[in-house]
Structures are given as C-alpha cells and as structure tokens.
Simulated assay, not measured.
Amino acid sequence: MTSRVLLVSPASSPALRQARFYDGFGPLDPSGAARARAAADSLPRADRAVRSPGARCHETAAELGLDSDELPELATLDAGHWRGRTLQEVGAAEPEALMRWLTDPESAPHDGESVQALCQRVGAWLESEGQEDGRTLAVVEPEVVRAAVVHALTLPPETFWRLDVPPLTVTELSGRSGRWNLRLGRPLADDTTPANSRRPGTGI
C-alpha cells in the first residue's frame, strides 16, 4: 500500500507579505486569489482534500476548486500573544524571547506552541495518512509543510526554519507510515510571486 500526500501552500496574503504572525483571519490578496484560480487546472487528482483552519487556506482551497475538509490537527503554529504582530514588532519588543524561539525548538516564549510540539502534532497526522491508500491533497500553512517534512525525513527540529515554502507550491510525500520519500516543492503553475514566505512565524 502506497500513500501520497500532496501539501499545497496557500496563496499570498497581506499577512504573508507583511511577515506577520498569522491569527487565522484576513483574506488572500487579489493577486494571490487570481493565481490560485489560474492554478486550479494544474492540480493533480486526489482521493480526498483537506485543509488547515484559517481564512487563507479556506480561500485558497475554494479558488483551486477543492471541496475540502478542515482539520484542526493541521492548524498552523499557535504563536500565542504574538498572533497578529509582525516579526519586526516582536523583535523590537521581545528580542531575547524571539531569538530563543528561533533557536530552541522546545521553546514557546509567546505562551503558545513550540516548534517541537507542532512537528509532533503534524507528524501524528502524517502517520495516520500513511495508513491510507491513495492520494491526499492538503492545503496547509507553510509551517505545517515544514513540520511534515521534518517528521517524514526524521530531520532534527532545528532544521525547521531552514525550509522555505513559497506560496502555491506543492510538496509531495509518498510511501507509507514510518517511511516517506520527498518530492521537493514545485509551483502549481507558472508564477512570479516572490518567495516571501521565508521569514519565520505563522504565515511568515
């Protein structure tokens, strides 16, 4: 039995462009929505479609023409009291806390969720998908893509921030529970969107 999990990152949004810790609200920007619509025909066939909670994954899935189920286990990293703030704002107000969070995967100075906890949560979902035959297409936040790759390849959690996930790209994992192969992210369609999801944070 072989499972395929295709992780699609959401289209661009103001929060993404502003390097803002995502709070689950806020729509896609018009250019992001247009690119998602244009990419709909390039989606591979899937046996089931799921998505992260939050407005931009919901809108991306809709623009891609997907009838998807929202799964709480695919929620983006909970940034606690940093939600809604930009990386620059947090760095100015809490520089030591921000540095600790970026360097220690078990740290959660924002009183939210640590990177380690996120990787474990997403990893548990991925292992459950590894018991299913066929193909799952998941529209998920960039942090969920990173966490899935860290788990699938048994990478050290410190590598989490070194994985770039541009908007509207596909990262494919294939295999079965306990053993996964990675096909590196590719754009759904020709896209000139800057790869500006390189900054850390929920939606950053």
Rank of each mutant, 00 (worst) to 15 (best):
Thr2Trp: 03
Ser3Glu: 01
Leu6Phe: 00
Leu6Ile: 15
Leu7Thr: 00
Val8Arg: 00
Ser9Trp: 06
Ser9Asp: 04
Pro10Trp: 10
Ser12Thr: 12
Ser12Met: 08
Ser13Gly: 07
Ala15Gly: 11
Ala15Lys: 11
Gln18Asp: 15
Ala19Arg: 14
Ala19Trp: 14
Arg20Trp: 09
Phe21Asn: 01
Tyr22Ser: 09
Gly24His: 02
Gly24Glu: 01
Gly24Tyr: 02
Gly24Ala: 03
Pro27Ala: 13
Asp29Thr: 10
Asp29Ile: 10
Ala34His: 06
Ala36Val: 06
Ala39Val: 08
Ala39Lys: 06
Ala39Glu: 09
Leu43Ser: 08
Leu43Asn: 08
Pro44Gly: 00
Arg51Trp: 11
Arg51Asn: 06
Arg51Ala: 07
Ser52Gly: 10
Pro53Trp: 12
Pro53Thr: 11
Gly54Trp: 04
Gly54Ile: 04
Arg56Ser: 01
His58Cys: 01
Glu59Trp: 04
Glu59Lys: 00
Glu59Gly: 02
Thr60Ile: 02
Glu63His: 14
Glu63Thr: 01
Leu66Arg: 07
Ser68Asn: 06
Glu70Trp: 10
Leu71Met: 12
Pro72Tyr: 02
Glu73Lys: 00
Leu74Met: 08
Leu74Gly: 05
Asp78Arg: 05
Gly84Cys: 12
Arg85Lys: 15
Thr86Gly: 11
Thr86Ser: 15
Gln88Arg: 15
Gly91Lys: 12
Gly91Trp: 13
Glu94Cys: 13
Glu96Tyr: 08
Ala97Gly: 14
Met99Leu: 06
Arg100Gly: 15
Thr103Ala: 12
Asp104Gly: 03
Pro105Tyr: 09
Glu106Thr: 15
Ser107Glu: 14
Ser107Phe: 05
His110Ala: 14
Asp111Pro: 02
Gly112Leu: 07
Gly112Ala: 07
Gln116Asn: 10
Ala117Cys: 06
Ala117Val: 12
Leu118Thr: 06
Cys119Asn: 08
Gln120Thr: 14
Gln120Asp: 14
Arg121Ser: 11
Gly123Ser: 11
Ala124Gly: 08
Ala124Val: 09
Ala124Ile: 04
Trp125Lys: 01
Leu126Pro: 08
Glu127Trp: 04
Ser128Leu: 14
Ser128Glu: 15
Gln131Phe: 12
Glu132Arg: 15
Arg135Leu: 05
Ala138Ser: 10
Ala138Trp: 08
Val140Met: 05
Glu141Ala: 13
Glu143Val: 12
Val144Tyr: 09
Val145Lys: 03
Arg146Phe: 10
Ala148Arg: 03
Val149His: 00
Val149Tyr: 02
Val149Pro: 02
Val150Gly: 05
His151Gln: 07
His151Val: 05
Ala152Met: 04
Ala152Leu: 01
Thr154Phe: 02
Leu155Glu: 08
Glu158Lys: 05
Phe160Tyr: 15
Phe160Leu: 05
Asp164Leu: 13
Val165His: 04
Val165Thr: 09
Pro166Asn: 06
Thr169Phe: 04
Thr171Gln: 01
Glu172Lys: 03
Leu173Trp: 01
Leu173Gly: 02
Ser174Ala: 12
Gly175Asn: 03
Gly175Val: 04
Ser177Thr: 15
Ser177Asn: 10
Ser177Arg: 15
Trp180Thr: 07
Trp180Pro: 02
Asn181Ile: 00
Leu182Thr: 05
Leu182Glu: 04
Leu184Tyr: 13
Gly185Ile: 01
Arg186Ala: 07
Ala189Met: 11
Asp190Val: 11
Thr193Met: 10
Thr193Phe: 06
Arg198His: 11
Arg199Thr: 14
Arg199Asp: 06
Pro200Arg: 04
Thr202Glu: 08
